[in-house]
């Protein structure tokens, strides 16, 4: 794959694993099961990223964990907390908003560009409010 494309894809996907994990773990699950679920769902995530991420989300209070020793192999089960669910809800809303906004930009570009009076305010507005960049900035 083209290195430039790979870099941009990585940028775009960064953060989606958090939303996906918080969403999946509404029903309790352990590290490897979550890894399987996510990769079946089409999220490219590696074990060495996911396992530390789960502990970080737990430290932030978005997940809670419990050791299940009922089976032969004891496993640490994670579950999304109320706070985690609230945040996941907000993140999913943001994801939808971005999806809609990008959809609007790509489908609405033709009629707007044909109208020079309307095109200026729309394009400058969407750049100056800049929700994408400011979110990325505060995330890091």
């Amino acid at each position: 794959m083209d290195a430039t494309l790979a870099g941009h894809l990585q940028e775009l996907r960064r953060g989606t694993v958090v939303v996906a994990s918080l969403t999946v773990l509404r029903t309790p699950g352990y590290g490897y099961s979550l890894l399987e679920t996510l990769s079946r769902a089409g999220f490219e995530v590696e074990a060495n990223t996911l396992y530390p991420l789960l502990r970080r989300l737990e430290a932030q209070g978005l997940l809670t964990s419990e050791w299940n020793t009922d089976e032969a192999r004891p496993r640490k089960f994670y579950r999304t907390t109320e706070q985690g669910e609230t945040i996941a809800e907000t993140l999913r809303g943001e994801w939808k908003r971005l999806d809609t906004a990008i959809g609007d930009l790509s489908t609405g570009s033709d009629p707007i560009s044909s109208d020079p009076v309307n095109s200026d305010p729309v394009s400058s507005d969407s750049i100056s409010s800049d929700p994408i960049n400011s979110d990325l900035g505060s995330d890091q």
């Binding site: 352990y30 396992y51 502990r55 192999r73 004891p74 496993r75 640490k76």
Partner: peptide, 17 residues
């Protein structure tokens, strides 16, 4: 101790699969 247990379980899960 906690990471030790969890990491081993995760590795065993992956190996079993």
């Amino acid at each position: 101790a906690d990471i030790d247990r969890e990491l081993r379980a995760s590795i065993e899960d992956a190996v079993d699969a």
